[in-house]
Design a protein around this nucleic acid. Structure first.
Length: 328
DNA sequence: TTCCGACAGTGGGGTCGCAAT
DNA sequence: ATTGCGACCCCACTATCGGAA
């Protein structure tokens, strides 16, 4: 299998100000952010037939795992091309759901894959064109690549080219929120495709939620953090007022924060778990504390199992009563 | 000088596959 | 049969450094 020879361009995490604050908003093209698996697509013509290869961000071949996407691409794209997109699986409301797609990741057995493809069909959302008929296009402005992409691809049930939204940032932001999407991606209209690099020509702005959490324990860290805290075990009160386990947070604190945390937790140590529902695996090598301290975390969404996805520490909430912390 | 972007190193949830228990 | 662990996918964040702006 030929190597793609390309690597995906990455977006820099930013805020509204990074897009709206500098110059003309019209410099930016706005798109919805799709929550799935990034994939570079190579379509080759061999003996008059299209062959398709899919590659993940870490150069892993993805094609065998998504036969319906490969098949759809072979019909949707005429001739030789390299494209960039996101493999997604839609939920019942038609939104890309990473949780659903996870059932497709890592499947190896062809029979399993075929069965999964019928139950949870995947699609690819294409948003860039890097090469066409062996002509490199990465030097062209984004809007031109986009136009050529739209002209090249014939959409079908597995292959879509979601349009850029022709709105200002605040409007696009509200739309992404109402649709329950991850956020918005702003791309400079005149920017070239920076192969394998993370640039500010692409800015992703994501919806984040905050949640007050009660600290019920901690796990020691590894490596440089071996003598201090690796992560905090978090809980919120349930309907009966018991402490319900909602996962861990292990990022967002500076080295100084960690030292302070370690001392503070040591003073309220206790023998038993304050959570009523802590799984055995999560309780392993945990140190329990009296559930007295309240902090705030930012996170992407709740998982099906009631855990925080992509949690990061934001700081103490000394003003909050641990007894009153509830899922927001 | 300031800022950007790359790297390394820490941490998270979830899934699958396989080895150890 | 259960558990633990690594390899994947997605990621956030801190700290450092060299070079571009």
């Amino acid at each position: 299998m030929t190597q793609p020879g390309y690597e995906a361009m990455l977006a820099t995490l930013g805020t509204r100000d990074d897009v709206v604050g500098h110059g003309d908003q019209g410099d930016w093209s706005l798109e919805m952010k799709w929550d799935g698996v990034r994939a570079l697509v190579r379509v080759e013509l061999q003996d008059g037939r299209s062959t398709v290869s899919l590659t993940s961000r870490n150069h892993k071949t993805q094609g065998p795992g998504y036969p319906e996407v490969v098949e759809g691409l072979s019909r949707a794209v005429r001739g030789q091309a390299v494209l960039d997109g996101e493999i997604v699986a839609l939920d019942a409301k038609g939104r890309p759901s990473f949780a659903r797609l996870q059932h497709r990741i890592n499947l190896a057995d062809p029979r399993e894959i075929r069965r999964a493809a019928e139950q949870v069909p995947a699609q690819i959302f294409l948003f860039d064109l890097l090469e066409q008929d062996d002509e490199p296009l990465v030097g062209l402005p984004y809007t031109e690549r986009r136009a050529r992409l739209a002209a090249l691809v014939t959409e079908n049930e597995s292959v879509k080219v979601p349009p850029a939204v022709d709105e200002d940032f605040d409007h696009a932001w509200r739309t992404s929120d109402e649709l329950g999407l991850e956020g918005v991606i702003a791309k400079r209209r005149d920017s070239r495709y920076a192969v394998g690099r993370r640039t500010r020509d692409w800015i992703k702005v994501k919806h984040a939620r905050t949640q007050e959490v009660v600290i019920g324990g901690w796990r020691p860290g590894q490596g440089r953090r071996a003598r201090t805290v690796g992560s905090l075990l978090l809980g919120v009160g349930d309907a009966e007022g018991r402490l319900q386990y909602v996962g861990r947070v292990g990022t967002g604190f500076s080295h100084r924060d960690l030292d302070e945390l370690h001392g503070r937790l040591g003073r309220i140590a206790r023998e038993t778990a304050p959570f009523h529902d802590i799984p055995r695996a999560d309780a392993r090598d945990a140190h329990w504390v009296t559930p007295r301290l309240v902090g705030e975390v930012e996170f992407a969404e709740w998982t099906r199992d009631g855990r925080l996805r992509q949690p990061r520490w934001r700081g103490w909430r000394e003003d909050k009563d641990p007894q009153r912390v509830r899922r927001e």
